[in-house]
Design a protein around this nucleic acid. Structure first.
Length: 864
DNA sequence: ACTTGCCGCGCG
DNA sequence: AAAGCGCGCGGCAAGT
């Protein structure tokens, strides 16, 4: 790496921050070896000698050096603008992680940071602030050796700087706010914030000042506190049995017990899957012991005694069992100790707590995020317990027990500790009810995961053969095109239809005149080669690429991964995808490895892949809520016209199709004439109105956008939408109300009580309650069915508005009656404002389903 | 060899 | 021309 270590002195003795240790650097003579030593004007910290808050930035900029004061440039002005008026600024002290200016305002290097560290640490140690506000990623990394400021902002944690313990509050850097303004759009007139990022920044800053007043004294755990009272027993002899069983028995009397398994696999469904060790943690002591770890030398009899005692504990004990990622722990518990153990109400999940307290996370980012135990221990105890213990997590079975067991024990101990911290916060923030509703989902989803999805391999093989053949045919056709030969001549490699890079080259360089205006942006540039672009290219190549993608997508995403021996098909022949409940920012579930929620359905040919979900002698029955999101809009807005529409079965879309023709006949040139007598055509136009006007309007689309969708002039779209709001005024008012609520509280919430926190865009504000309520209704029905504790009412799949079951043919009527009854009788008072409807379809597989009935709350008589 | 980011596209 | 929202996954390119 490019670290210039050669000029760094190597002297031992001083207490070093890990990031400094990493570079083998010592503090002595720091300034004389600093790469920035020749830069002009080293800054001194300014402000209060004994500050309440220490404002820590990244490095001085040009203005700061000129004025000899930190935070006076553009970013500093923005920051000062948002410091609440009631803050006494004479109690602040200002400094940067690097005190000289890196040339061109570049990010300071690790060496530069290391050089300044001692001086900044000393200053904090001497000035003893109650809290440090760190602006941006650099101070965050400086403080806790972790990055990800957009996810850390708005949180807080105890931190130790030198000998001084205080709070650390990460906040985004004001320059990030300034940059966000360039991209911001749709600002409301008279709004004091120029973007939602700016609003979030101001809110987090205000909240930080408030927190400093409210938080108690910070406590940071070091290695000694982490390991304290963590015991383990690896002797595997008679005395171990007594000790472990006595300990397990003592846990019955605890209020809260931390619990943790170490396993050799993520899922318990294969014969090699085993629980390696177990740890329980009570108020006084934590104990970890081996189970099936390679190095465990239990006699069969001794191990079965321990297992029996533990099973009794899991099934019978009244204490709260606190784990991290309950779904994971319950899957293993159910498979190894029985399903009856997981429906007790005394489970707690620190990951779910964290999700309810702050759902913000970047699901695209690899590595531990805000819901990980790593983050939580950092946040609540100022320590990363994973970083303290270097055991190889990926191969615990081959790690020595002297590493596995302490690791296991520390985890269990902190499950308990983090649980207690978060339980307090949930209570004080009024989120216990939301947490409880969330926790109901976990055993339900776990039981669905265990139930699994049957994949018919004969169907799969036929599909694989078919689509492989079709893909090859398209490949051959593409290879024969002259542009493919030209591509080879120009690039020296064969054209790969799967490489968009290659497709772009052909489109851009070889077919420029084939590309219609529509496929270009205002600078005549082709921005992408997606479906929309390729459809507008009048050349065989574009058509063939689209065809190729269809075949390839279906194969690689849906068919090939379902093969026996792949990582989604287990030894039982079933797929066991995970239905995640702590992932989306709207309270929907998501489906993981494989994603059963996005299997083809709309495309007439490719939807046949659903035929793989099939079990001989069984029927696949899907029951979906009809138009649930539009009903959610009615529930949220209580708009009289919309409510009436649902009660009287008035078809909004059909109505507005006719109105649209009235206002703008040109839109339906041929359609206008057909409306009266051509049912199929009318349906097509109704569909357009539904998807391009009615729904987008409910969900916050601007008139410009719906105009574009419909292909009418903006003035027409504007007029049309104005009329639409005349008909549904309270929907429009509800949009506005959401915005006001958000600006007041910093989050939006649905009728179900979940929260989505800043920063969020205007349309996200509207959408989140809709999706949240939708999910609450569907998952509640799924919960109530699951809680009947009969396997037939445990859904195989949940897809946002749909529950799917796989039943023996003879049982369908009996079972479906119960499912429909449960689904239409939604217990939430807020949902009762409109009738809810479900539609059931049935088939021999998931593909060949036919509608078998529609049932509504207000007409349901209790039988099919 | 592995991670990360982007694109493209499947669903509600 | 076009931001209604929410996801997961496969392929490729580029970085380490």
């Amino acid at each position: 790496m490019g670290l210039e270590l050669k000029f760094l002195p190597s002297v031992g003795g001083a207490k070093l921050h890990p990031s400094v240790l990493k570079y083998g650097f010592q503090y002595r003579n720091a300034c004389s070896v600093c790469p920035l030593k020749s830069e002009l004007g080293r800054m001194e910290p300014v402000g209060a000698k004994r500050p309440t808050i220490y404002m820590l930035g990244e490095a001085p900029g040009r203005e700061e050096i000129k004025e000899k004061a930190p935070f006076v440039g553009v970013s500093g002005q923005l920051l000062r603008l948002h410091i609440p008026d009631d803050v006494d600024q004479s109690t602040l002290r200002w400094n940067n992680c690097v005190r000289s200016r890196p040339p061109g305002n570049r990010t300071p290097t690790p060496v530069e940071l290391a050089c300044c560290r001692k001086s900044v640490e000393d200053d904090i140690e001497q000035s003893k602030p109650r809290a440090i506000f760190g602006f941006g990623n650099i101070p965050l990394e400086w403080a806790i050796n972790k990055t990800g400021i957009t996810q850390w902002t708005g949180r807080y944690m105890p931190i130790k700087v030198g000998a001084h313990t205080c709070w650390y509050l990460p906040i985004t850097h004001p320059s990030y706010v300034n940059r966000s303004l360039e991209k911001a759009y749709g600002q409301k007139a008279g709004d004091k914030f120029r973007s939602e990022i700016e609003f979030a920044f101001a809110m987090h800053l205000k909240q930080a000042f408030r927190l400093v007043e409210e938080l108690g004294d910070p406590v940071v755990h070091g290695r000694i506190e982490v390991m304290q009272d963590v015991k383990y027993d690896l002797a595997c002899n008679n005395r171990s049995v007594d000790r472990i069983i006595t300990f397990i028995k003592s846990m019955y009397d605890e209020e809260v017990v931390g619990m943790d398994y170490e396993t050799n696999a993520l899922r318990p469904f294969n014969s090699r899957s085993k629980i390696l060790s177990v740890a329980l943690s009570g108020s006084k002591e934590t104990l970890a012991w081996p189970i099936k770890h390679k190095k465990a030398t239990w006699s069969e009899r001794d191990l079965s005694r321990i297992e029996a005692a533990f099973e009794d504990f899991v099934v019978d004990s009244e204490c709260i069992k606190a784990v991290h990622s309950l779904a994971f722990e319950q899957e293993w518990t159910a498979v190894f100790y029985g399903k009856r153990a997981i429906r007790t109400k005394r489970w707690a999940c620190t990951m779910s707590q964290a999700f309810i307290l702050d759902e913000r996370q970047n699901t695209n980012r690899a590595g531990p995020g805000p819901l990980s135990l790593t983050w939580l221990t950092q946040q609540y105890f100022g320590v990363d317990i994973k970083a303290l213990n270097p055991v190889n997590r990926k191969d615990l079975d081959n790690a020595p027990l002297t590493e596995v067991l302490p690791y296991n024990g520390v985890d269990a101990k902190y499950h308990r500790a983090v649980y207690l911290k978060q339980a307090k916060r949930l209570k004080s923030e009024g989120l216990l009810g939301t947490y409880k509703e969330h926790m109901r989902r976990v055993p339900t989803m776990v039981l669905t995961q265990i139930k699994g999805i049957p994949i018919n391999q004969a169907v799969r093989e036929r599909l694989e053969e078919k689509y492989t053949r079709q893909r090859k045919e398209v490949e051959r056709k593409i290879a024969k095109l002259s542009v493919a030969k030209e591509f080879f001549d120009r690039k020296g490699i064969e054209l790969r239809p799967s490489a968009n890079h290659d497709v772009m080259f052909v489109v851009d360089k070889l077919l420029p005149e084939e590309v219609t205006e529509k496929a270009r942006d205002k600078d005549e540039k082709i921005l992408n080669v997606n479906e929309g672009t390729l459809e507008n290219i009048k050349h065989e190549f574009a058509r063939l690429i689209l065809d190729y993608r269809k075949q390839a997508k279906v194969l690689s995403t849906y068919i090939t991964p379902m093969a026996v021996g792949s990582d989604v098909i287990y030894e039982d022949g079933l797929a066991h995808p995970v239905t995640q409940t702590t992932r989306t920012r709207t309270w929907r579930t998501s489906s993981d490895g494989f994603n059963y929620q996005n299997w083809p359905k709309r495309d007439d040919e490719r939807k046949e892949v659903r035929g793989m979900v099939k079990r001989k002698g069984y029927k696949v029955v899907s029951v979906d809520y009809a138009g649930i999101q539009a009903r959610n809009v009615a529930m949220e807005s209580k708009d009289a016209a919309l409510v009436k529409a649902f009660r009287e079965r008035y078809d909004i879309h059909a109505d507005w199709t006719e109105r649209l023709v009235g206002i703008h006949a040109r839109w339906v040139d041929e359609g206008a004439k057909a409306l009266a007598h051509d049912k199929k055509l009318f349906k097509a136009y109704r569909n357009r109105v539904k998807n391009e006007f009615v729904f987008p309007s409910f969900f916050g689309a601007r008139p410009e956008t719906v105009s574009h969708y419909l292909g009418v002039e903006e003035s027409v779209g504007k007029r049309l939408q104005a009329k639409f709001w005349e008909m549904f005024p309270d929907v429009h008012k509800w949009h506005d109300k959401l915005f006001k609520f958000y600006r007041k509280h910093g989050y939006v919430t649905g009728l179900s009580g979940f929260r989505r926190r800043a920063p969020i865009s205007h349309n996200e504000m509207i959408n989140s309650p809709i999706q949240g309520d939708e999910s609450t209704i569907v998952c509640d029905a799924m919960n109530r069915l699951s809680e009947m504790r009969k396997p037939e009412f445990q859904a195989n799949m949940e897809i946002h508005d749909d529950l799917t079951f796989i039943w023996p043919e003879a049982d369908v009527n009996k079972n479906l009656t119960v499912v429909v009854d449960t689904m239409v009788n939604c217990p939430f008072e807020w949902a009762k404002i409109v009738p809810i409807g479900v539609e059931a379809s049935m088939g021999d597989d998931w593909h060949n389903q036919k509608s078998i009935g529609e049932y509504f709350t207000d007409t349901w008589k209790g039988s099919l």
